[in-house]
Simulated assay, not measured.
Amino acid sequence: MRITIDDVTVTLSGRDILSGIHLIAAEGEIAGLVGPNGSGKSTLLRTVYRHLKPRAGRVMLADRDVRAMTAPEAARHIAALPQERGSDFEFTVREVVAMGRSPYKRAFAGDDDLDREAVAAALRQVGLPEYGHRGFAALSGGERQRVLLARAFAQQPDVLVLDEPTNHLDVQHQVELLALLREQRRTTLISLHDLNAAASLCDRLHVLHQGAVVASGTPREVLTPELLATVFGVRAAVVEHPLTGDPLIAFDHHTPASLMGRAAAGSA
């Protein structure tokens, strides 16, 4: 399903965190949100999965406003993996993943065969098929991350909303997660700090800065040295990845863009 964010403004504590946001994630597209800390990425994702209500504008799932849906109906279509993730669940891994089936069940209803198969399939997808009996709280940060992603998969949603899903994952599991998301070909809104991961994964990128979208397009169109300097405050070259052909950002770790600006002004 297509997600349309239509002129959304979100106000918190009397201040506009997002202002006039418009972007589209087409059906089956992986749309990335990138930007500095505080640019509004998480706020926008929370608005999509109904944790926050916009002051103006609307979020449309296909042709329906998500605010017009009931909570279970919205959860059958949109699964979220937020940054704020419980780490002290006194549940087994299987019980945590099974929480993803709640939008399909009546209150206090037990699991049926469809639920059990959906949970088992989700655990296989994230590479943890033998973890069902383990205690969630005893897992490493990366293992918990994969279990919570399995919970989102168990919802069998049309849209995934993922806020920094590669946090706490080692390099191998980051690569495996990105490959898994590509294989899903499910409409996905994802925020990522790692710009090279975003360039590799996403069909389109939307750059947020100070609560507004300042650039949208393919990674190759968006990730320019000029934008990286202006929005992220870094000096970088953008080259072709020798293995994949994706844009690859080579950062200058010696000279911040702000110092380059002062040096240029001093020599003028």
Rank of each mutant, 00 (worst) to 15 (best):
K105W: 09
A107L: 11
A107W: 10
F108Q: 00
F108E: 00
F108S: 02
A109Q: 08
A109K: 06
D111R: 01
D112I: 12
D112P: 08
R116S: 14
R116A: 14
E117Y: 01
A118R: 06
V119Y: 01
A120N: 09
A120E: 07
A121T: 15
A121V: 09
R124W: 15
V126A: 08
V126S: 06
G127Y: 12
G127Q: 10
L128W: 07
H133Q: 12
F136S: 05
A137S: 04
A137G: 00
L139V: 01
L139E: 08
S140I: 04
S140C: 13
G141I: 10
G141Y: 12
E143N: 05
E143T: 04
R144I: 02
R144M: 06
R144C: 03
V147T: 01
L148S: 09
L149A: 07
A152Q: 06
A152L: 10
Q155F: 14
Q155R: 14
Q156K: 15
Q156I: 06
P157S: 07
P157T: 08
D158F: 03
V159S: 14
L160D: 02
L160R: 11
L160Q: 05
V161Y: 04
E164V: 03
E164R: 09
T166N: 11
N167Y: 10
L169G: 08
L169Y: 06
D170T: 08
D170A: 13
V171M: 15
V171D: 01
Q172F: 14
H173W: 08
H173C: 12
Q174H: 05
Q174D: 03
Q174E: 00
V175C: 04
L181I: 15
E183A: 13
Q184H: 12
Q184I: 03
R186M: 13
R186G: 10
T187C: 13
T187V: 12
L189M: 08
I190K: 06
L195T: 06
A199F: 09
L201E: 00
C202L: 07
C202K: 09
D203A: 07
D203P: 00
D203V: 00
R204A: 11
H206T: 05
V207Y: 08
Q210I: 02
Q210R: 13
A212M: 01
V214Q: 03
A215I: 11
A215K: 11
S216L: 03
S216M: 01
S216G: 07
T218E: 04
E221S: 13
V222E: 05
L223C: 14
L223G: 14
T224F: 12
T224M: 11
E226C: 01
L227I: 13
L228I: 13
L228P: 03
L228C: 12
